[in-house]
Design a protein around this nucleic acid. Structure first.
Length: 314
DNA sequence: GGTCGTCAAGGGGTG
DNA sequence: CACCCCTTGACGACC
């Protein structure tokens, strides 16, 4: 069993974010010409930063990565007409080549405004636009990227909400459907609900273990893990998991700075019977530094062998 | 020259 | 109903 480790979006060790923004009110104030100029500057700096981050990851042998969803500010804003995919054709290709040449795995996590199962039609439409925009970015890069989503709203009760998710999902372009992965959340849709949807729709499920600890009906992870991994059977990618430690006892749902290495080892103990190669994304505030610290802490465990950021269970 | 409120967007929770 | 939270960086208003 091999476990690759990764982190989220923005490394702390180098000065690069790739998520610089332009607010719409600022854009409007500048007027179309100067607004677009401003957008161009920010987008170019985001591309430069993204290259820096990817190269940093390559240097550190971190082979999978959650890309920011803010690479192109106002990219889906209805009032901003800015030709992204022609203007930045070269930049997208350049990024895509770095990713492909280094065999990196790329995911995105569209943010809270992307609610495919909203009861508001307008929200559903704009959510679909967000998904299509991600699809276009992957296409422009020429990569096989994925988008990790939550089920979304619970309005009308979980059962209805899950039904709406299914209906809206099935209306999407089949190519887009194939890019979508569902993740259990920390409030509403637990591993049982999320797994059911993934099985019905034949899409992979990311297990977020922290969310599971916040939101469960007593489901034991050992009873579900094989079924969760089975949702990846037709994929070329390894099953992916999210792992983090709670900030403290009171703020259980927030992520802490670092990963508690005992928690991590306990978790691995629970799932190692599956003997699957997996990718674990660490969702800690200290990002890449949390990853490096975790490795330093568990490096000398007898059962584990390390090659850079990959853990091998012996 | 530092601090703070504001910003396209959803939804859930509280009082 | 009004306001708060999630998250996150830029920017302008203000002291």
């Amino acid at each position: 069993m091999q476990i690759r480790l990764g982190y989220v979006a923005v490394p702390l060790s180098i000065k690069a974010t790739s998520s610089s923004i332009v607010t719409y009110s600022h854009y409007k104030k500048l007027g179309v010409a100067r607004g677009n100029e401003k957008l161009h500057k920010v987008i170019m700096s985001n591309f430069e930063d993204l290259k820096k981050i990817l190269n940093y990851n390559i240097k550190n042998e971190i082979s999978f990565f959650r890309m920011t969803s803010n690479l192109i500010p106002l990219g889906t804003h209805p009032e901003v007409n800015y030709e992204i995919f022609l203007t930045y054709k070269e930049q997208f290709i350049e990024i895509g080549n770095i990713i492909k040449q280094n065999d990196m795995r790329i995911d995105t996590h569209p943010d809270q405004f992307c609610v495919l199962n909203s009861i508001n039609e307008v929200v559903v439409t704009s959510s679909i636009n967000i998904l299509k925009f991600h699809q276009s970015m992957f296409k422009a890069m020429g990569i096989d990227g994925k988008m990790i989503l939550h089920v979304g709203s619970s309005a009308g009760g979980k059962r209805n909400a899950m039904k709406r998710f299914k209906e809206n999902f099935l209306k999407l372009d089949p190519l887009l459907q194939k890019m979508i992965i569902l993740e259990n959340d920390d409030k509403v849709f637990n591993i049982r609900n999320t797994l059911k949807l993934c099985e019905d729709l034949k899409i992979p499920m990311v297990l977020d273990y922290h969310h599971h600890l916040c939101n469960n009906n007593g489901e034991k992870i050992t009873d579900f893990i094989e079924k969760i991994f089975a949702t990846w059977d037709n994929q070329t990618l390894n099953p992916k998991l999210h792992f983090s430690s709670p900030k403290n006892k009171k703020e259980k749902r927030s992520h802490s700075e670092y990963i508690e290495h005992e928690d991590f080892l306990d978790f691995i103990e629970k799932i190692k019977f599956t003997n699957k190669d997996i990718d674990i994304m660490l969702e800690a505030k200290a990002k890449d530094e949390a990853l490096f610290r975790l490795i330093r802490q568990i490096k000398y465990e007898k059962e584990y062998k390390f090659i850079k950021n990959t853990v091998f269970l012996i």
